[in-house]
């Protein structure tokens, strides 16, 4: 479904991604863990072309998406890859319903009533059926993040990217978002999840990828990487994270 070969990314002098190779099969849930600055977010942003890799190739469903600077390449990616951000990034001047239906109407050219119906059903699915006419500022963080998930799902993506989506939430609001993500995984969505939630990675992830300083240090099923990490850096990171 998604392949990365030798992906490098620099920001000026900073070499953030130093050769990433990854193969994400359809229906798998890749949980990417690692310290801050390891390049996890940059990795996600390269997958949906918010950043353009400096070297290497990325293939989505067999089609190469890097090196295609043209609009067509970017459209191809953005209509198949959805992303949910740590800061939600909901559109404040639109209602919840408006947020979920806007891109359907403008990008997919769906008629307004069809977009609205789909938006309502998705919002009900994430447990926000009664909030469709509210404005984002009146919702809790967990509710806003679930709207963001619905908004991305409305475009019917083939892959969903999650960039530390619970890191900005109060602890009691994290579960509701992880539950939605778990259901999504159970339904077979291909997901790449950057997270610090080790419990989620253990229970829902099919592969755990530990990144440090721009490279994949270790990768494997959660039982291996999280319980019996082979690499010393992985062990150190997990020791620190699991301490508290």
């Amino acid at each position: 479904m998604l392949e990365l070969h030798g992906v490098h990314k620099r920001f000026g002098e900073l070499h953030v991604l130093r050769g990433i190779d990854l193969a994400v099969a359809r229906g798998s849930v890749f949980c990417v863990i690692g310290p801050s600055g390891s390049g996890k977010s940059t990795l996600l942003r390269c997958i949906n072309l918010l950043e353009a890799p400096d070297e290497g190739r990325i293939l989505l469903e067999g089609t190469e998406i890097t090196g295609k600077g043209s609009r067509d390449g970017i459209d191809f990616v953005r209509r198949r890859v959805g992303i949910v951000f740590q800061q939600f990034n909901l559109f404040p001047q639109r209602t919840v319903l408006g947020n979920v239906s806007l891109a359907q109407e403008k990008v997919l050219d769906r008629p307004a009533d069809e977009a609205r119906a789909k938006a309502e059903s998705l919002l009900r699915r994430v447990g926000l059926g009664d909030k469709i006419d509210e404005y984002p500022e009146r919702l809790s963080g967990g509710q806003q993040q679930r709207v963001a998930i619905a908004r991305a799902l409305a475009m019917e993506p083939h892959v969903m990217l999650f960039d530390e989506v619970t890191s900005a939430l109060d602890p009691e609001l994290i579960k509701e978002v992880l539950d939605v993500m778990r259901e999504l995984a159970d339904e077979g969505m291909t997901m790449v999840v950057v997270t610090h939630e080790m419990g989620f990675a253990r229970e829902v992830g099919s592969q755990v990828v530990f990144m440090d300083e721009g490279v994949v240090v270790e990768q494997g099923p959660p039982q291996e990487v999280l319980e019996r990490p082979r690499n010393e850096r992985t062990q150190r990171f997990l020791g620190l994270v699991l301490e508290h």
Partner: peptide, 18 residues
């Protein structure tokens, strides 16, 4: 306007103009 707004809109497939 925070960059995240443009990023969210572009990630949903909207063009710069949209």
């Amino acid at each position: 306007i925070p960059n995240g707004q443009m990023e969210a809109a572009r990630s949903l497939g909207m063009s710069h103009g949209q």
